[in-house]
């Protein structure tokens, strides 16, 4: 690929281009510099930032030009076959291939069955789960809390991502500790930081924060909690209260 093309590709990542693609998406946030009142004289007060529509990839998932995607079609076929065998093939909402990674978005009801298939099916054999990551998408109404799992197959040397969601109002996701004991602490951490209740976890208690802590500190609606720093009479506000770019 020539240098020229690379530049063009980088240009596509610029905000205005992305914005054009996303014009159909709902407005996620307005304004810049974090100003909520009319105090923003920058001219960016009217800016509208839109959220991206949920991405869905179509087959084929394997891009012949990208070696990272080499086994995606095989994995997707095998997973579909295995799920069809237990009648849960509809539980995978969509499949997303992005930046050489494949993500299976699955309904939470079927998570445990899906990971059992991932672990036990000889064609899949994802022996290693590298834990669960909680992500709080404040604007994703009805599915605010995402739990992201990465599975690694040592037999087939492959990595996939499984993502499931739950609403803030009903933060329940089935625990997969019975299938992957390694997720014990990872799920406790996600509960501690995000308030996701993992049903079926043997002892879902706080792990990082003190037992009597209120709230789940890494959620987006939880403040960073810094204090103003004083130096010789002047103060600097904590990072989350400073003027900033978005």
């Amino acid at each position: 690929m020539s240098n020229e093309n690379e530049r063009d590709e980088a240009a596509e990542n610029l905000p205005d281009q992305l914005g054009r693609e996303r014009l159909a998406a709902p407005v996620r946030r307005t304004g810049m510099f974090g100003a909520r009142t009319s105090g923003d004289t920058s001219g960016f007060g009217g800016l509208q930032v839109r959220g991206s529509a949920p991405a869905q990839s179509q087959r084929p998932f394997t891009d012949p030009d990208d070696p990272r995607t080499a086994d995606f079609d095989r994995v997707a076929d095998d997973l579909e076959a295995a799920l069809t065998a237990i009648g849960r093939e509809a539980e995978v909402e969509r499949v997303e291939v992005d930046r050489g990674e494949i993500t299976f978005h699955v309904r939470r009801e079927a998570l445990l069955e899906l990971v059992r298939v991932l672990r036990d099916d000889p064609a899949l054999r994802y022996e290693l789960c590298t834990g669960v990551v909680g992500v709080h998408y404040l604007e994703d109404a009805g599915r605010e809390l995402h739990a992201v799992y990465h599975f690694r197959s040592i037999t087939h040397n492959s990595v996939i991502r499984v993502e499931t969601t739950c609403p803030d109002a009903d933060p329940h996701i089935p625990s997969i500790v019975s299938a992957y004991p390694t997720n014990d602490w990872h799920e406790r951490e996600a509960w501690d930081f995000f308030g996701i209740v993992f049903d079926g976890h043997p002892s879902l208690t706080r792990i990082q924060m003190p037992d009597d802590w209120h709230g789940h500190p890494q959620r987006k609606d939880y403040p960073l909690g810094g204090i103003p720093v004083e130096y010789r009479g002047a103060t600097v506000p904590p990072p989350d209260e400073r003027r900033s770019y978005t």
């Binding site: 990542n13 610029l14 905000p15 992305l18 991206s52 992005d98 930046r99 990674e101 993500t103 992500v135 992201v148 990465h150 990595v159 991502r161």
Partner: peptide, 8 residues
Amino acid sequence: RVPAGQAY
């Protein structure tokens, strides 16, 4: 700016 998405 980093384009929206996730990576591991």
